[in-house]
Design a protein around this nucleic acid. Structure first.
Length: 487
DNA sequence: TTTTGAGTTGTTCGA
DNA sequence: GTCGAACAACTCAAA
C-alpha cells in the first residue's frame, strides 16, 4: 500500500519532451490541481543498444540543465534518477505518496513496451496514469489508408492523409502557476551522470553551433522564420548555405514540438500573403511530414532499426570491409564531399541533409557496407540521433525501406559536389587540406595535374587520400550486387 | 473487384 | 552542350 500524503503530488515523467510549453502531460498534471513532481530518468538499460550515443548525451546534459532551470524558476524542481524506469517510477510514486502519473508517449518499441508495463503496474495500485501525444502532429492510429491497409507504406498518400485531417491542435503556453509538493524528493546531481565527453575539446564544435534547451529551440525557429524560410525550397539542397532549419535535435529531444513548428510556419505563411511564402511553407512542412512518416513506420514496423523493411534485402551480399568503414567514419574516403560531410558530423554532431544522403549512399552502394553499420555510426555521432528518423532514412537510402530510393540510384559524389557546392566552399571548410585547390578540381583532386596539386600543397596519398574505390567500378559492382539480390 | 495512376532528393549513354 | 531513354518492374493507394 502506498503512503497516503495529505496533498499527494502528481508525477510528471519527462522523456523526449524536454519543454514546458505545448507539453500536454505537464499541462494535464497542472490542471489536476496537485502539486507537481517532475521526473527525468536516465535509463540506459531499457534502451539497450539504442541508449543515447556520445553526441546525444552532450545534448541531453545541456537540455536537462535548461529544463531544470526552467522548472526551478516555476517553483517545481526537476528530480533526476537513474535506473530501469519500470522500477524507478513506481518507487518514486511510493516514496512521494503520489496518486497520479502523467507522461508523453514515445514510439520506440522498447519505450512503448515500457509504457505499458509501468501503466499496468501503477494502475494495479490504483494510481491514475494519463499519457499524451506530444511528439507527433497526429496520433498514429488516426492515419490509415482508405483501402483497408494497416498503415501507409508510401509517403505521398500518407502526407495527403495528414492534410485531410483537421490541423493539429494549437500549442498551449506553459501552464502556471505550478505548485511544489510540501516535501521535496531526493534526486541525483546532473554532473554525476557524466553525460559530457571525457575530453572537453570533443564538444568544442558542438558548443559553437548549438544552444540546447527550449529557449534555444524557440530562437532557432524564430531565426528560420525571420531569415531562412523564404529561400528554403531553393536553398535546402545547398550544403554551402545555411538554408536548412537545424531544428532536428530540438525536435528529437522535444524542446519544441511539431505542432508548434506547424502553427508557427502557417502563421508566417499567412502574414506575408505572398506566393513565395506559401510555397516555402509547403516545402518545409513536407520535411516535417517525413519525420512524421518515419515515426509512423516505426510504430507499425517496430523492427525497423534492425530488419530490412523489404525482406528480399536479406539476401544482399554486403562486403562489410572494416578498413573501408573506418575510412568512411573518419572522412578519409578520398571523395571530398563525402569526407566533408563525415567531418562535419564529427565536429558538430550534425550533417547537412543532402550530404547525409550522399555519404550514406556511398557507404551502402560504393562500399557495399550494411546500412546498419552506418546507422550505428550516425547514432553515436549525431546530436539529433532519432531511432525512427535514423532507421527509416538509412533504409530509404539502402533501398530496403518503405518508398525507398531505387537500387540503381547511385549518387556520384563528384557530380553532386559540382551541382550543390559549385564553388567548393563546403568542402574547403571541412577538408582544409584541399583549401587551395582550384574550383575545377576541388571535388576531384585526383584529376588535377601534378603541378596544380603541388601548388595547392596537396600530396595525394599523403596529405589527402586517393579515392578508396573507383567510382565507375564501385557503381558497376553495386548494380551487380543489387541485381543479384533481386535474383 | 478491378483498374489506374503514381511514386523525395540520379546517373549514364547515345543521338 | 542538350535531351530523352534506360535503369525495372512493382507495390501501394484510391477510385
Amino acid at each position: 500500500m502506498a503512503n497516503t500524503a495529505p496533498d499527494p503530488p502528481a508525477v510528471v515523467w519527462f522523456r523526449q519532451d524536454l519543454r514546458v510549453a505545448d507539453n500536454p502531460a505537464l499541462a494535464a498534471a497542472a490542471a489536476s490541481g496537485r502539486p507537481l513532481l517532475p521526473l527525468y530518468i536516465l535509463d540506459d538499460d531499457s534502451a539497450g543498444e539504442w541508449a543515447p550515443g556520445g553526441a546525444a548525451r552532450w545534448w541531453l546534459h545541456h537540455s536537462l540543465a535548461a529544463l531544470a532551470g526552467r522548472l526551478a524558476g516555476l517553483g517545481v524542481p526537476l528530480v533526476l534518477r537513474t535506473g530501469v524506469a519500470t522500477q524507478v517510477v513506481p518507487r518514486l510514486v511510493d516514496e512521494a505518496g503520489a496518486r497520479s502519473v502523467f507522461w508523453n508517449r514515445r514510439v520506440e518499441p522498447f519505450a512503448s513496451a515500457q509504457d505499458a508495463a509501468i501503466a499496468a503496474r501503477l494502475r494495479a495500485r490504483a494510481v491514475t496514469v494519463e499519457t499524451f501525444n506530444a511528439a507527433l502532429l497526429h496520433e498514429p492510429e488516426r492515419l490509415r489508408p482508405k483501402g483497408g491497409g494497416e498503415y501507409f507504406k508510401v509517403f505521398t498518400p500518407f502526407w495527403k492523409a495528414c492534410l485531410r485531417l483537421p490541423p493539429p491542435e494549437p500549442p498551449a503556453p506553459a501552464p502556471r502557476p505550478l505548485r511544489a509538493p510540501a516535501r521535496a524528493s531526493a534526486g541525483e546531481a546532473l554532473e554525476s551522470w557524466r553525460l559530457l565527453p571525457a575530453t572537453p575539446e570533443r564538444a568544442a564544435g558542438f558548443e559553437a553551433l548549438w544552444q540546447p534547451g527550449e529557449a534555444g529551440a524557440r530562437l532557432r525557429l524564430e531565426a528560420v522564420l525571420a531569415d531562412g524560410l523564404e529561400n528554403y525550397a531553393a536553398g535546402r539542397d545547398r550544403p554551402d548555405q545555411a538554408a536548412t532549419s537545424r531544428l532536428s535535435p530540438h525536435l528529437h529531444w522535444g524542446e519544441i514540438g511539431p505542432r508548434q513548428v506547424w502553427h508557427a510556419v502557417e502563421a508566417w505563411a499567412q502574414q506575408g500573403k505572398r506566393d513565395g511564402r506559401t510555397k516555402a511553407a509547403e516545402a518545409f512542412l513536407r520535411q516535417l511530414a517525413w519525420r512524421e512518416f518515419s515515426h509512423h513506420l516505426l510504430v507499425h514496423f517496430p523492427d525497423l532499426p534492425w530488419r530490412n523493411f523489404r525482406a528480399e534485402f536479406d539476401a544482399l551480399a554486403w562486403r562489410n570491409d572494416g578498413r573501408h568503414l573506418a575510412a568512411w567514419q573518419r572522412g578519409r574516403t578520398g571523395y571530398p564531399l563525402v569526407d566533408a560531410g563525415m567531418r562535419e558530423l564529427w565536429a558538430t554532431g550534425w550533417m547537412h541533409n543532402r550530404v547525409r544522403m550522399i555519404a550514406a549512399s556511398f557507404l551502402v552502394k560504393h562500399l557495399l557496407i550494411d546500412w546498419r553499420a552506418g546507422a550505428r555510426w550516425f547514432w553515436d555521432t549525431l546530436v539529433d540521433a532519432d531511432l525512427a528518423n535514423n532507421s527509416a532514412s538509412w533504409q530509404w537510402v539502402a533501398g530496403s525501406g518503405a518508398d525507398a530510393a531505387p537500387y540503381f540510384r547511385i549518387f556520384n559524389p563528384v557530380l553532386q559536389g559540382e551541382r550543390f557546392d559549385a564553388k567548393g566552399r563546403y568542402v574547403r571548410r571541412w577538408v582544409p587540406e584541399l583549401r587551395a585547390l582550384p574550383e575545377r578540381f576541388v571535388h576531384k583532386p585526383w584529376a588535377a595535374p601534378a603541378a596544380v596539386l603541388r601548388q595547392a600543397g596537396v600530396a595525394l596519398g599523403e596529405t589527402y587520400p586517393r579515392p578508396i574505390v573507383d567510382h565507375a567500378a564501385a557503381r558497376a559492382r553495386a548494380l551487380h550486387a543489387f541485381k543479384a539480390m533481386r535474383g
